[in-house]
Amino acid sequence: MPRFMGLVRMEEGIAPAPEALFTAMDDYVGKLAAAGHFLDGGGLYGTEDAVNFVVADGEVTRVDGPYAEAKEVVGGWALLRYDSQQEAIAAQQEMAQLHATYWPGCKVVATLRQVSEAS
């Protein structure tokens, strides 16, 4: 069964999500987990404590957050398993719809990518 990575990008520094969204997401993730689709996932803290390692010209440089230039950051992630890409896409759209329904003032980009199974 193919695995997929779901990512939620959002503007950093906006008001916290409403409790109704957390409740709806808990119910949704519970449903996915019970069906064997949700493997792991969670929300991420802001970039204030983030650490980036930048590789350029054969050198590695550490850059600590916060990052003033960051407008959109990954706010959450999920590792998912579905029989088909079409099922995964439908599930990601449903998750995005939960954000539209319960947090209509936010701008979220919900991305779905298939995980490479190459060794």
Rank of each mutant, 00 (worst) to 15 (best):
P2S: 06
P2Q: 03
P2W: 00
F4Y: 14
V8D: 03
R9W: 04
M10T: 06
E12W: 01
P16W: 00
A17I: 01
E19V: 09
F22L: 12
A24I: 02
M25S: 10
M25F: 04
Y28P: 01
Y28S: 12
V29R: 08
V29L: 10
G30F: 14
K31V: 08
L32M: 15
A34Q: 10
A34H: 02
A35G: 10
G36D: 01
L39H: 09
L39E: 11
G42H: 00
G43T: 15
L44W: 11
G46Q: 06
T47A: 07
A50V: 05
V54M: 08
V55Q: 03
V55N: 07
E59L: 12
T61H: 06
R62N: 10
V63C: 05
D64T: 08
D64W: 01
P66Q: 15
A68L: 11
E69Q: 14
A70E: 10
E72K: 15
V73Y: 05
G75T: 09
G76T: 07
W77I: 05
L80D: 06
S84P: 01
A88G: 14
I89N: 11
I89Q: 15
A91V: 09
Q92M: 13
Q93L: 09
M95K: 03
A96V: 03
L98A: 13
L98K: 11
H99V: 05
A100T: 14
W103R: 01
P104I: 01
G105F: 01
C106Q: 02
K107G: 02
K107R: 09
V109D: 13
A110C: 10
T111R: 05
R113E: 01
A118D: 11
